[in-house]
Design a protein around this nucleic acid. Structure first.
Lengths: 128, 128
DNA sequence: CCTTGACTTGGAGTTAACTCCAAGTGATAC
DNA sequence: GTATCACTTGGAGTTAACTCCAAGTCAAGG
């Protein structure tokens, strides 16, 4: 699969895909005879994983480290697990923080709704 | 209250507090005779609000717009409500995305746990 | 054969959000 | 009274993560 199709399928620009490969976040993709990238199914699974992690806010340097360990095979399983556990906890904390902000927003929106309603009621009473 | 105390209380650097004031995210804080900022209780409530919204990832430009509307009084209530509703939806979407990633991480961690357990079991069997 | 269009590279530029710095001021400690 | 310290300003520098660009290659269509 060519870069344009991967880009469209996972909604990541070609520039970003090449950038990820350059910095080692995605391992080198195989090329065809003319040097053009040909993404394998495994490559696309990696793209999907990286996209998912990046969308959740995991930092690139941590993900590079993780992908390096993946390349090194089974002896790095413990280290990889620790990275994922650390990031899992950080992510859970961020979600909790955002959830609290969501509730605050809901509360403020409700206060505004009531303010609008009171204002409308006041206008009706004047008109009546 | 001086900037250092606000900084410590809300865990925002003095530089950031001054930066927020410069770009209009926080309204000008009153100064004492020697030009030093003296944060009022209202000021600190605003700091707390901005800190909360920023931590949840709301962009600065949107928050500046919101704070400008707050300064303009009651006639902007409807507009402010719309901003908060928009941001609420964006935030809810991001939380959902992150929640899905959290679950994926949990799944991967579990897979790694099992891999480690299998490896340990294999070693025990060799030793036995 | 020539044009078109997707691809390639290395490197430069951009964006958001800070973060730091130099030079200066005023109040307090010794 | 002078050293120290937190504060002030305007502006420059940094960081993370892209994003864009110029110049070139290659395959397919007319």
């Amino acid at each position: 699969m060519r870069i344009a199709e991967v880009s469209e399928r996972y909604d990541i620009s070609s520039d970003t895909l090449r950038y990820y490969e350059r910095i080692g976040l995605l391992p080198s993709v195989n090329r065809n005879g003319s040097g053009i990238r040909d993404y394998s199914e495994i490559d696309t699974r990696r793209v999907k994983f990286v996209k998912c992690m990046r969308s959740a806010g995991l930092p690139i340097d941590v993900l590079i480290k993780y992908m390096e360990l993946v390349q090194q095979g089974d002896k790095t399983i413990e280290a990889r697990k620790e990275i994922l556990k650390d990031q899992r906890e950080l992510l859970a904390a961020r979600i909790a923080e955002m959830q609290a902000t969501l509730e605050l927003l809901d509360h403020k929106i409700e206060v505004y709704e009531n303010a609008v309603l009171r204002a409308e009621k006041a206008i009706l009473e004047i008109e009546a």
